[in-house]
Design a protein around this nucleic acid. Structure first.
Lengths: 138, 138
DNA sequence: CTTGACCTTAAAGTTACCTTCAAGGATATG
DNA sequence: CATATCCTTGAAGGTAACTTTAAGGTCAAG
């Protein structure tokens, strides 16, 4: 795969792929013909993995730590274990936050589903602000 | 409320509150005695609202646009309507993404719940990488 | 009356990209 | 086979949303 093919497959821009490559999260090979970066299916797996953990709030550095060892087939990925074990509570609570937010937004937006044209009125915008004006479960 | 009291109530740092204030998303009053910023309960509502829409991928500028008009009690919040109406599809799809990610992470992490000590083994880390190595629904 | 924890501002640093630049290779059309 | 359009590279600069630093003012406790 060329850089923009991988980018399209993973739903990101070519620049983002290049960025991850610069930062050492992806390890493409060089095409000796033209010097282009060549990515394989493992790169795509890693790219998807990166997206998931970025959504969960992990930094690229942490993800690099996870990927660096996890993709090696050895059984004692102690570093990955440490990182994940430490972050697990935050991951779980972040998932809970997402779920809570999803439900609240779904409820808040449901009021619009039946408005004429599906366009919110000013009153409903204020209503949404009220609906969402409670602390996120932290 | 002082800046760090509001920060604690909203689950962010004092610096984040100051940042939102600088950017015009919060409008505290000045304590004439000492020049400190004073925030009220509406500030807390706005802060919670900001958190929700930040999680949904809105920029501070967009949120400022929403808050600027939505908090006024007039009926024709046309700007807010425009912003929300335009972003509604993305909001919905982003909620779907969150839900999908939550389920996948829940499933992937469930394998750890029963491991000795609840600590993931290297094999399970690799397993997680495999489990998450599919494109997010875009 | 000083120590420590809080507040203020402005400015610089950080993270994770995104955009732009110049130089050059690849592929399609006339 | 020239020309246009697209792709590639590295390096550099820009941006958003914080975060940290610096230098100082405020305030309650001991």
């Amino acid at each position: 795969m060329k850089v923009s093919e991988l980018a399209q497959a993973g739903g990101v821009t070519a620049e983002t792929v290049r960025h991850y490559t610069r930062e050492g999260l992806l390890h493409p090979q060089r095409d000796p013909q033209n010097g282009y970066q060549r990515y394989d299916n493992e790169s795509l797996s890693r790219l998807c993995f990166i997206q998931c953990f970025r959504m969960l709030g992990f930094s690229l550095g942490e993800i690099k730590g996870l990927l660096g060892e996890a993709m090696q087939e050895n059984i004692s990925c102690s570093k990955s274990q440490d990182i994940l074990a430490n972050q697990l509570p935050q991951v779980r609570s972040r998932i809970k936050e997402f779920q809570a937010l999803s439900e609240r937004m779904d409820q808040a937006l449901e009021a619009w589903r039946d408005t004429p044209g599906g366009v919110p009125t000013g009153h409903l915008v204020s209503q949404l602000v009220d609906d969402l004006s409670q602390p996120v479960i932290v």
